[in-house]
């Protein structure tokens, strides 16, 4: 039986994208979530999708400064998975007279789901903006802002004569990315 302190340590590892933590949470909880989905008209693929989303919810929660865990991780995972699956069923309009049974105790997760939806939307905005700017902008921005490469190395990789040229190009790309991002952000918000 894991204690809340151990669970908390796992979530802290998760916030740092540590492989070990992700794997441990999978091993501890995957069977439970899969059973929940399979027992309620879902498929193994649905179970995988739901579990991935639960992991993202956990990651976002663990990254908050105000993060605290008030129950066992297992209970939290179950509660989030149950809510996400209900929602999916509703979207697919398969949610008729057979409600998802509570196999285990649940805790309220409304706030967490709300935060997740908001973060997911923002992730989607950036992903779609990145998808639209085209090459070489996409690779250039990814190299600098995602992979955190040095400007000198980027200049060499992309064939710019010097780091300053690469930098100017990077900012031009960034202006376009910003425009694409905010266009959605303002419409969506």
């Amino acid at each position: 039986m894991s204690t809340i302190a151990q669970d908390k340590a796992l979530l802290e590892g998760l916030a740092r994208s540590e492989k070990g933590a992700i794997e441990a949470i999978y091993r501890e909880n995957y069977g439970m979530v899969q059973a929940l989905v399979l027992n309620n008209t879902g498929s193994p693929d649905d179970a995988r999708d739901i579990f991935q989303e639960v992991m993202i919810v956990l990651y976002e929660k663990a990254g908050l400064e105000s993060f605290e865990l008030n129950c066992q991780l297992k209970t939290f995972v179950y509660s989030v998975a149950r809510r996400l699956w209900l929602k999916k069923l509703q979207q697919m309009q398969r949610y008729n007279s057979t409600p998802v049974e509570n196999l285990q105790e649940t805790v309220p997760v409304d706030e967490d789901i709300e935060l997740h939806e908001q973060k997911n939307q923002q992730f989607g905005y950036m992903e779609s903006a990145m998808g639209k700017i085209g090459e070489p902008c996409k690779s250039l921005l990814e190299a600098y802002y995602l992979q955190k490469k040095q400007m000198q190395d980027i200049a060499a990789d992309f064939g710019y004569t010097n780091a300053d040229n690469a930098k100017t190009q990077k900012y031009k790309c960034l202006v376009r990315l910003k425009k694409l991002f905010f266009a959605q952000y303002k419409n969506g918000g």
Binding site: S17, K19, I22, Q52, M55, I56, Y59, G63, K119, Q122, F123, M126, E127, Y145, L146
Partner: peptide, 14 residues
Amino acid sequence: LDVYARAKAFRHTL
């Protein structure tokens, strides 16, 4: 952008 970078890295590890 930074939040996105970290979320993307997390999803990849996932």
